[in-house]
């Protein structure tokens, strides 16, 4: 069912939602950008529609609500452990089509790739999704080429036009709530983009010659261009790597906590192993690993692309390294490789 709501009407719905769920949405944090007098747009818990940033792309993603950046798993004392409380027991996440496609990738890794991940599952269990419509692409978006510009699986959608909010509700138990606060009942189709200025041509993962690709000099430029800061990973909605930290409290070294923290394949120490080994020390090698993982390895294993084309890695790179440009270079290389 589709609805048109006023701001007050939508806020009344959100207030009702908030009784049962935490609402996570892109939010503008004034003065919290990297540079002085710039804002940061990232996910936060919100209560009203005014707190949701609908006009700009967030630099970080919804992923934080499902995989906290730093998550304490349990606390330990000498004889006992106590499991941590989950950061939420139910959430509604407001996100765009590319990001909703990314949820499928997270589920793939944490739920369908061997045993369920307990900590992921306890946050994922009671989560609903509100799709934010995209009336035009942002800089660096390439969702169309990744096939992630449209999605039909959502609980509700949200578009804003001329100060009015348009909702397509698919969650049957929400219809009466929306109906009670709607100005009008009508058919609503969430907006989406069907072309982006940034275009990506993907390599054929069936025929790609990985030996040629790995030995190629195309990665060498990143040895000096990349600074291994990990911003691309931290802003990616599909990165799922984490590392474990066992922390012993400084006041009493016999008690502590185990936490898991996001890890970045671009940052030092990612490939450190027991015995002092370390792999992919050159930044070009890390770039190669990341690009191939996003557009080749994952597809070969799960049958669909990992990258969803949100373009955030390009948005946030301080060295202006473009992931989409690297993918295009890779495709060109793999085509040339086949001809020979």
């Amino acid at each position: 069912m589709g609805y048109r709501l006023s701001k007050d009407g939508l806020n009344a719905v959100l207030a009702e939602f908030s009784r049962h769920y935490k609402l996570y949405a892109p939010h503008r944090f004034p003065y919290q950008g990297e540079h002085s007098d710039t804002d940061s747009i990232r996910y936060a818990e919100v209560k009203t529609v005014d707190e949701i940033e609908l006009g700009e792309k967030s630099s970080h993603t919804f992923k934080e609500a499902l995989i906290p950046i730093s998550e304490t798993l349990f606390f330990f004392t000498e004889d006992n452990i106590k499991e941590s409380d989950p950061v939420h027991t139910g959430a509604i996440i407001f996100l765009r089509s590319c990001d909703l496609h990314a949820v499928k990738r997270l589920d793939e890794i944490y739920l369908n790739n061997g045993a369920d991940d307990y900590y992921y599952k306890r946050l994922r269990n009671n989560v609903k999704f509100v799709l934010l419509g995209c009336s035009s692409p942002f800089e660096n978006c390439f969702c169309v080429d990744m096939g992630t510009n449209i999605i039909n699986e959502y609980d509700a959608s949200l578009d804003v036009r001329d100060g009015q909010y348009y909702v397509d509700c698919k969650a049957s138990d929400w219809n009466s709530l929306f109906q009670n606060h709607a100005e009008e009942i009508l058919d609503v189709v969430p907006s989406h983009v069907d072309k982006t200025p940034t275009r990506v041509s993907l390599p054929d993962t069936n025929t790609i010659d990985t030996v040629t690709v790995i030995k190629s000099s195309m990665w060498d430029e990143y040895d000096s261009r990349c600074i291994a800061c990990g911003r691309c990973n931290c802003s990616c909605p599909t990165c799922t790597c984490f590392t474990m930290q066992d922390i012993f409290y400084t006041d009493n070294g016999r008690v502590g906590e185990r936490r898991r923290v996001w890890a970045s394949c671009m940052v030092d120490k990612f490939t450190d192993v027991a015995g002092g080994g370390s792999y992919r020390n050159r930044y070009g090698e890390r770039m190669r690993f990341k690009v191939l993982h996003k557009v080749v390895d994952f597809k070969q294993r799960f049958g669909y692309q990992m990258c969803v084309g949100c373009g955030r890695c390009d948005d946030v790179c301080p060295e202006y390294i473009s992931f989409s440009h690297a993918v295009n270079k890779l495709s060109k290389l793999s085509k040339e490789g086949r001809k020979q």
Partner: peptide
Amino acid sequence: SRCVSCGA
């Protein structure tokens, strides 16, 4: 809560 211990 937002720290990944990257050490930057």
